[in-house]
Nucleic acid binder design. Sequence first.
DNA 1: AGCCGTGACATTTTT
DNA 2: TGTCACGGCT
Length: 932
Amino acid sequence: MSYTKSQLKAISTIDRNLQIIACAGSGKTEVISRRIVEILKQKKSACVGPPNIVAFTFTEKAAGELKDRIHLHCREVLGTDRGLADMFIGTIHAYCLTLLQSPPQYDFLKYRVLDEVQQRLLIDRNSKKSGLTETPLLNGGHLERWKDSALYQQLLAILGEGKVEPKKIPRAVWEAFGKYHELLVEKKLLDYTKIIAEAVAELKTNATIKEKISNQLKYLVVDEYQDVNPLQESLIRELAGLGANVCVVGDDDQTIYQWRGSDVGNIITFSDRYGDVRQLPLNENFRSSRAIVETARRIAEKNNPDRLQKAMEHTDAQPYQRGDLLALGFKDPAAEAEWIARKIKSLLGAPFTDRKDSPPRGLTYSDFAILLRTVRRDAAPILAALDRNEIRYVVAGMDGLFDTPEVRAMSLVFFYLSDFAPKGGTSPTETDVRAALQSPRLGLPSGRLDAGMDFLKAKKTTIGDRMDAELYLQRLYLDFLEAIQIREVDINAAAGDASAGEIVFFNLGKFSQVVSDFEQIHFNTVPKDLYPSFSQFLHFQAPGYYPEGWEEAGLARPNAVQILTVHRAKGMQWPAVFVPALRKNRFPSKRQGGRSVWSILPEKAVTNADRYKGTIADERRLFYVALTRAEKYLFCTWAPIADNQQQRTVSDFFNDFTNSEHVLTKDPVVSTPPRIPEKPRREDITLNLSFSALKYYFECPYLFKIRFLYGFDTPVSRALGYGKSLHDALAEIHSESIAGRIPSGTDVPRLVDEHLHLPFANAQVEQSLRDAAHRALSGYINEHGKNLTKLEHVEKPIELKLDEGVVVSGRVDLIRRTDTEEVVIVDFKSDERAQKEDISQKQLHIYAVGYEQLTGKRPDLIEIHNLDKGGAIREQVDSTLLANTMDTVVEAGRNLRDNKLTRISSWCKTCEGCDMVGICRPRETAMSKKAA
DNA sequence: AGCCGTGACATTTTT
DNA sequence: TGTCACGGCT
């Protein structure tokens, strides 16, 4: 790999703070990863290693890609990638959570992180305690339960992550904010904002943490810096203040998340706010033709105020021919769509060269992308045209989960059970439910419908004042699916399509998560209230919160035209890009009306209030992102919508685009280009796996698919949290031991009090588990207390980089040494989390390989403790088993990639203990076997 | 040309 | 419930 001058400069600038201004397509990830490896290389003598480097990315996916590249460069440059598991590469949220949950901090171990849906459920369920209904509107009145909870979430985010002037905020709003945080503490919950806020607070006030970080953190890299919000910036500030060298990377022209509070000001004034900053622009674009680069550049430069000084330069990455860039208007969207479809057809097989040194290949479906401001409103005519022309495509974010027949049917099941009448309708009868279940999508013969209806009728009579384990929502949902014996293969057969079942199961799996989200917040509600309440949630709120239905679950990309929003397209590229629907009020989008946070907060109280609303400059940046996705062909089009008053005129952006001299406004008639065989671009996808996910794969590949690809969840239990609590207590015991403060039996009551957190237990369960926890911990200290002086690592991150972009990562509970200085890998089980020993053994052998990769040393022994029963299994690390295990892991990676996740061929022990067997195969009991 | 009342319409999404 | 397009009016 050869680098340009400015890339080399960026890579080798490691002793000063650095701001890399990365134009679109400038090889940013390559530069950051190579720079990190350069630090390892040059600073090795100064004892700087992986634990001293931290890199923040915007998404987990980006983290995976960066990790992969660092591994690659490490092997190239240093000859080994040993020890990389100790480098933190991930999102700011993940970093902060780790910080809050690492020794000597133990309080936050028992906290659970809410996602946005669960946060909203919590707010509504506790509408007063959460402060929701006590929040006043500026012109009178208060926020209302259910109706305004989404708005309240937005308010919480601005108050927590934005820059606000407390004095200018109504007192009652501030008090509500406080109440919400009390509620979080009471329930031991964190939300996305609070993770960061708490970490910042610790960094500001906790001397121990400060010292720890300041000793450890030497280099901080922040990717996508333009999308950082004020709270995140304050974290970066604190980390820099503790002595870290800071490198930020970003492009102010690509700030597109302003409505989430990101502040371009951060990147623009970086060099004024941090000392000794070297500013390096990466101007060369290695992605697109000169025409695209120059056209896009003019758009970015056009009256976008406050830009960083830079000038994107082309490198003739693609040859340009007149006609590659077109700006066309049509009489209506149908005509526009038809032209797009025909253009795609005419370009299929056109010769295209991915890189200057690679041989040409013919363009195929996956080389085309259609980028829209809104897929939901503008995709329809395009889909119709592609269908007519038999062009394969995938749409992201088109129809919601709740629009699919299978999820509608499941909602109806719950409406029926609770006699819930959807707005403007009546509650469904048996006939209605039956009709919904009869949808060919579910592939159910009538006999199974009968069984299903019988099941529902019987259950319905039991819904009353008393909770029964069988009435927990998830339990009932899974039992119902078992009653109708739904099977992926049957759906495939009914549809005559080998992948139809995957889509339906994916959606049913998502529905299982919907059930979980609701149930975890409403755990203590009696059935006769729980069911109607869940129905209301399904009807009024859930559809807006689970917009995504089926999307290829991220493993393989099909050879099809991609249709997606510009936001989602960020970071991607295609040989040919269409940007249709360039109408005024659409792109740039019209500001939305309605009740907003500005009905609660005075605009003066929030610095940069405008940012949240979005400006024309923000929209232009978005347009710029769209244009710079294209490598060679770029087509901007528009057409008026006759019956929509606001969508009848052309967008200013279309005219800006037309102003470029490279753009033709009429499709030139050219002789058909030569065609060569179509061939998809080889795409390296990285696959990130956790050890726990892999554990399921070892049990049964199909179970893995059900749990991790489809997302089916298991029913909650009252004991949930017990195993985790023990685990947390042990983490403290071991961490404190390493620090020289070895706990004794007298510490056990305190440890139990501190760590036992059973969110779903009743008094009786709580008491018995509390006793059990006492016994387990006392037993452990009695039996193994003598070993506590010889501990090496607690919760050690382990990472395995396999071939073909598969990375497996996880944590080892404990690594200790024996009296004879042998290394032992230790894993803890409790009855709650019990599993078959051979799986634990396999798992520990993977850890053994991981440990070897991390330290270069092979562990000698593996040990499995059973905390509830006491005692331990101990065996020697076996090199044959080690090799076998590796083979299995590699094979697992390959099967995942190829989507070969089939169930175990016949009923076996695994099936007996499997939570998901009901949607896999009929149960075989001892009785049924005898009968057969 | 500019004012004003009326009616039509309503985005993006990761942690 | 805020914003825009439209058309009637000055």
